[in-house]
Amino acid sequence: MGGGKYSIRDLFDLFVSCSLYLNLNSVLILIISAVYLGGGYFAADTGIVTAIAVMTFIYVVDRLNVTEEDKINNPGRSALVRKYRTELFGLSVVAFSLFELSLFVTVFSPDLSGAGALALAHVPLAVLALYDEIKTVPLPLDSLAVAFTWGYMLVFIYVFISPLSVGILEGAGLFCGWFLIVFAGLEARNAKDIEGDREAGKVTLASRFGCDQTKRIEIALKSVGVLVLVALSGSPVVLALLICHIGLLRLFGSLETDFREEGSGEPLDSGRISGD
């Protein structure tokens, strides 16, 4: 795009700084999960739209809620969000509409089971509604809540939307594996936010144990998560795709770190810890 308000650089920075790349990676996560469950790569079916839509809505709404620690930790992103608030709000409306539409054509039915499935589909939005309160608890509950949301969303999609049959052990393994991987990545990302989190009184593993110990915890938890998914699936393809997933997140995480350094004008040593 040319002059005026919009620029390609701004749009790229929004994509990176608002972590919208996670929505693209959600497709890869669904593919890995499908292979883990013994299905085809796109066995999630319409659930792909459901996942992208709900995660876009959640992350955009969270970014629109600029907190005091956001202004300290990520002033560049906070400025971009203020500049494009109207457009981001519009994106959240589109994402929410797509999410609801995907549920209408997949799980909705005018009976008790359909109403129950529809209610269960909105658990991630309930977590979002409580997220500000969750962040005030003197424990890393916000990372636990986000990791729960990712794991829950995957299980919901493959139980209620995908044609695959999911057993209890398979479902539990799917949830636990991704819960550990996502939680580890989130807490590693918090190593970039130590100053703002401490000032805001927010408890994270990084603010309590430091960057080096958090890095070791990240490696341990991600390794266990990967082991769960690979061991229960017995598939080398799952391992290969998980390596690709983690590698892509490291790439985007480094781009996000570069953006934050430019926005703050200071190098972020702790930013060398990877993203989700």
Rank of each mutant, 00 (worst) to 15 (best):
M1Q: 04
Y6W: 09
Y6I: 13
I8E: 11
L14C: 02
C18A: 15
L24K: 01
I29W: 11
I31R: 03
A34D: 00
G39C: 08
G39R: 08
A44T: 11
I52N: 02
V54N: 01
R63L: 03
N65M: 14
T67S: 15
E68M: 08
I72T: 10
A79L: 07
G90C: 06
S92M: 03
V94C: 00
S97K: 00
L98I: 02
F104N: 06
V105L: 15
V105I: 15
S109D: 14
D111Y: 08
G114W: 15
A117F: 13
L120T: 12
H122I: 13
L125D: 01
A126S: 01
L139D: 07
P140S: 04
S143M: 02
S143N: 09
F148H: 06
F148M: 05
L154G: 06
F156S: 10
F156K: 09
F160H: 08
F160L: 05
I161T: 12
G167C: 03
I168N: 00
F179E: 00
F179M: 00
F183R: 02
N190T: 08
N190Y: 05
D197V: 09
K202S: 03
T214D: 05
K215P: 00
K215R: 05
K215T: 01
K222S: 13
K222G: 15
G225H: 09
G225C: 09
L227H: 07
V228K: 07
V230W: 12
P236L: 15
L239H: 02
I243A: 15
G247F: 13
G247L: 12
D258W: 10
F259E: 11
E262H: 10
S270Q: 03
G275Y: 08
G275W: 07
